[in-house]
Amino acid sequence: MSEINREAVAHLAQLARIEMTAEELDKMAGELDVIVDSIKTVSEVAGDDVPATSHPIPLTNVFREDVPGQTLTNEQALSGAPDAEDGRFKVPAILDEE
């Protein structure tokens, strides 16, 4: 129990870019703990000899030829933008990151 505490959820919320209040973090921690507890058995079922399946129907080498197709107009591209300027999407300041 309590593997997922408030600090852990706060870190996950930061990774997932969702702002959460202290109460939300506590509530989420409680709910996730129950859920994770109930699905934990999954990690004990399959041994090393069982391969992982990431696609239900296995396909390989699905390619596109290198031929240009239809593009959006600048107007279409920006049609849903919350804010735009000079044909580009406008976003608030990005403080010192990469």
Binding site: R88, V91, P92, A93, I94, E97
Partner: peptide
């Protein structure tokens, strides 16, 4: 520069 910018414009 990135530091001190008020906003940024994105071209995809």
């Amino acid at each position: 520069r990135i530091q001190g910018a008020d906003f940024s414009l994105v071209d995809y």
